[in-house]
């Protein structure tokens, strides 16, 4: 009885893994063959390549948002928010090249420092201490 349960749960795990791999490979193939080109002016350099890159970053951000919505405890949500901040820094750095505007990277620097301070404050709150301790 017990062994059967373990075996069936293992089989469920592998089936879920196969479905997940299938979805990820399908999405990657879709990005490669049908990129969305609404973000930039088409005359700028590297536009097809960078619109594909930005869609991969959007996918990672959606995985983080799943963890923010579903996370069973508060620390899970805080981790996801921290990771989302670092992803946004990468996003700002990537936007720099196809648009040719150098102030995106300024937003990236400020976002990195600000999300660091926010995460520290949230972690202090999690410990149940005052902020000035």
């Amino acid at each position: 009885m017990d062994m059967n349960k373990i075996k069936s749960s293992n089989r469920m795990k592998i089936v879920r893994w196969l479905i997940g791999m299938f979805v990820i490979l399908g999405v990657l193939a879709g990005i490669t063959f049908y990129p969305i080109k609404i973000l930039f002016h088409p005359d700028l350099p590297f536009v097809p390549l960078f619109s594909r890159c930005l869609i991969i970053l959007f996918l990672s951000a959606f995985l983080c948002l799943y963890r923010i919505l579903r996370g069973p405890t508060a620390p899970d949500r805080i981790v996801a928010i921290d990771i989302l901040g670092i992803l946004i820094v990468g996003f700002c750095a990537l936007m720099c090249i196809p648009t040719g505007r150098s102030w995106y990277i300024d937003i990236g620097i400020v976002w990195a420092l600000q999300s660091f301070i926010g995460t520290l404050a949230l972690a202090k709150y999690l410990e149940g201490r005052d902020l000035d301790e």
């Binding site: 405890t73 620390p75 805080i78 921290d82 202090k124 999690l126 410990e127 149940g128």
Partner: peptide, 9 residues
């Protein structure tokens, strides 16, 4: 900081 806060909470 998050790891320590999670363990203490």
């Amino acid at each position: 900081a998050i790891a320590r806060g999670a363990h203490r909470s």
